[in-house]
Design a protein around this nucleic acid. Structure first.
Lengths: 208, 208, 208, 208
DNA sequence: TATGAATGAGCCTTCATTCAT
DNA sequence: GATGAATGAAGGCTCATTCAT
């Protein structure tokens, strides 16, 4: 295993350097987030205990609170990070040249994001119907869905599709539904044929 | 003047007849289920306490355990009942004369069920991603989804639609996605135009 | 042991009567308060755990929370009750015929209260310097001391004593100091001779 | 620009001399004691955390344990130091020429000490009733009170005052009571008039 | 049938203390 | 001498469930 030279020959009785600490913090924080996400995703937020997360991540319970103020704060951190990822990926869809291309990109990108963040989406879907948990997440998460739907409607409007609002509602529901069914049973779901069908239907020039 | 509920219309000194008892049981049970469903739907299963349900239903906590062995049993009862409702409604779809008609009926019936059991669906969607809760629900609920998808695929196959399995996956996902978005914001969702669009797409003879 | 007739020959399968419940609640509540006071008094508020109180009172920890919303609420309840007792006793001092008599009564009554509520005073003295705990107690407890001092000053003014405010400060401090020393070591403190001396000094007609 | 504190004025490459080390130790120790006392006094011993002290003193939590073995040890150190101060000041009272003068000195010195060590007295009064904390403080603090009372009684006996033990109890209680009321509200308390009254009463030749 | 007091396990969180550097 | 990451043992509180009436 590779050991960074600067950390190797250090004076034994000197406090860790600021950078070393920063790295430790980043790693531990990431580890906690990772395991918390996996467990939240699998068992649901309420059914996941801090003890489970700590054990899974291989740290003490107490340590969690040096990184996150509370269980809810940990959840918020997970959402903040994943939402940033998603937003970044979504932005790529706007790069398409033609309206149709943008729609196609959006659809494809959505499912790529899904594939790469399966656990996050599971968590997100699990939490979506629980008002109490959503409140702990803050208003930004609630507004997020609306944001996506608006982007979608704009794209469809650009593509001169009839009834763009209704179509956006349908397409968004479709993506969401497929995502959930996939996430519920990734190995049993025919994701790729489904994607192609959807692309074919929404992004191919002849009217639907 | 306050009258203790149990002493209100019931003559304490006369033993109740067996039928009267049975009727009371049925009524109380229904009342508990009804209020439990409303609360589970609103706050989520884990965030709803037995105390909340008891208060809401106007019975004591202890009494709840004469009707349901546990909180999980109560959830199971709710699912059993709602699933029976759903199955019954779904069966009606099979009555359609032509394959296309059957598909149309299935779609329309699905959304009727949705409209009539909003709370149940909210609960169901909230619980769906939580492995721990699902286990408490027993295997029958898990199998349910598969069952619906199979019915759907059979209908599509009968209607000679290409790739019926993929199409079933898509249609089911679509129905599910629309249902969720509707349930999340019933008053803001254009449910009826969406239904017509879907019917138009899947149940009208010329290829989509 | 005496058993109340109405509770003796009851139908086994009937819920407890409202009065029976009320009595149980009153007894249990009193038991909790009593043991909590003893422990708070002995170990201090912060060092007394809910577990200690529950064990001492012979109830479960959970039960405490059916009677008091929190540990702080329990403390507040103790203060509310004891303060009411004290106020009632203090009112008796106003019954004295002459100013001197009123002062004498006040002094004697103060130490009677002290004797009867040793534990409460210990607790009160222990908590007095801890801003954080006082805040949890609410503003009424803080105002209490001021109230007593004012009563005292009024009495001394009526008795035509020079510098009544300074004298009130002194007399109050004296009573407080004696109370604390007594409470710290009840069996080793010469309380009664001290009381007589104080009465003699403040309540005997010739000017001090 | 931010400069890391430890690297500020210290040349890392030159080993510090023994005296320099000792001076640093003394300074750091004093700093910790000072901030700990302020916080203990303000929030109470139990409500003050090691983290609060470390932050306030500008040192790391770990470092505190190089100076004091435990939180209790820190408290002990504070008491030891303040008690030494007090004892020294008290000794000055014995220098008085006549018995009356010694009593007057004792009274005046007591309140000087009070004024100079307000925080310590607050802490001391806050901790006095908490058996659990007192035990951690060790037996010497408990004996201290007795010691003061004995000195007082001896002085009063020398001054040929009747019932010197009872009078000592009273005078000590009075000083203690005044001290507490003053410490509870330094700016609102008429300390100086009160002192003069007390001196007048106890240290002026004609009988009280 | 019905009530509500009582239990106990478990959860989130805090904090004095230790350890590696 | 100094730092701060890490630990682990409680502590307050909640809640599904049981029990006596």
């Amino acid at each position: 295993m590779y050991v960074h030279p600067t950390t190797k020959f250090k004076d034994r009785s000197t406090p860790r350097s600021a950078e070393a600490n920063e790295q430790i913090r980043a790693e531990t924080s990431a580890k906690i987030v990772e395991h918390a996400l996996a467990l939240f995703s699998k068992h649901g937020y309420d059914r996941t205990t801090i003890a489970m997360i700590a054990t899974s991540a291989g740290v003490s319970q107490g340590l969690m609170y040096r990184y996150f103020d509370s269980k809810a704060a940990l959840l918020r951190a997970i959402f903040a990070q994943s939402m940033a990822d998603v937003r970044a990926s979504m932005a790529a869809a706007a790069e398409g040249q033609t309206p149709r291309e943008r729609i196609e990109l959006l659809i494809r990108v959505s499912f790529e994001i899904l594939r790469d963040h399966r656990e996050f989406w599971r968590l997100s879907y699990g939490v979506r119907m629980q008002a109490a948990v959503l409140k702990e997440l803050g208003p930004r998460v609630g507004a997020w869905t609306t944001e996506i739907k608006k982007t979608l409607a704009a794209f469809l409007r650009d593509a001169d599709i009839d009834d763009p609002d209704v179509e956006a509602a349908i397409l968004f529901a479709l993506i969401d539904g497929v995502s959930q069914h996939y996430v519920l049973d990734p190995s049993g779901y025919p994701l790729y044929p489904v994607i192609e069908q959807i692309v074919d239907r929404y992004a191919t020039p002849q009217s639907s």
